[in-house]
């Protein structure tokens, strides 16, 4: 299943990129991809919840924090390649695109899909994170010590 990895992306990484991508961004890139494959559903898109856990004191025992919405689906391409998706949110269209892309990423189309979908999404996410980090950095307090009278 995982023999045809592209050099820089393993399946865990690309599925993570697809799961977190904003729906609009993913669907826009996918719409531009000209060789979208035919497929059959193994499991049509289904919206559900995942219980998110934290740890007491950040490092201790797990506890249940609350749920998040997730949409999942599985499909099979005509060559038999199976694609899965578990994506954040409630968009069935996003899950379908993610599963189709997951399948294509296991085929000879992987380099093209990487270039036209996965890398742009990863780049957009990184740019958004960097922009927030830059704003946070500007709010970092620079302490300076006042010269005290008796020291002069």
């Amino acid at each position: 299943m995982e023999q045809e990895k592209t050099p820089h992306w393993d399946r865990q990484a690309w599925m993570g990129v697809l799961a977190r991508a904003p729906e609009d961004a993913l669907l826009a890139l996918w719409a531009q991809y000209d060789a979208r494959p035919a497929f059959d559903w193994l499991r049509p898109p289904e919206v559900g919840g995942v219980m998110v856990r934290g740890r007491t004191g950040a490092r201790g025992a797990p506890f249940n924090l609350g749920e998040m919405t997730v949409t999942r689906c599985s499909l099979v391409l005509q060559d038999g390649t199976v694609g899965h998706a578990y994506v954040q949110g409630r968009s069935k269209a996003k899950a379908e695109a993610a599963a189709a892309i997951d399948a294509l990423m296991q085929t000879a189309a992987a380099p093209r899909v990487t270039k036209s979908v996965i890398e742009p999404l990863a780049h957009q996410r990184q740019a958004a994170r960097t922009a927030r980090a830059a704003k946070a950095a500007a709010t970092k307090v620079e302490f300076f010590t006042m010269v005290r009278g008796e020291d002069q």
């Binding site: 289904e46 919206v47 559900g48 919840g49 995942v50 219980m51 998110v52 856990r53 934290g54 740890r55 950040a58 490092r59 797990p62 249940n64 924090l65 749920e67 919405t69 997730v70 999942r72 578990y86 994170r129 927030r132 980090a133 704003k135 946070a136 709010t139």
Partner: peptide, 23 residues
Amino acid sequence: YRTTLPRFGCSCPVNTADMACDR
């Protein structure tokens, strides 16, 4: 609404030491 959703599972505990901090 939450009660209408099937539960797909539970996450691994989140690692807040890796948080991209705004504050």
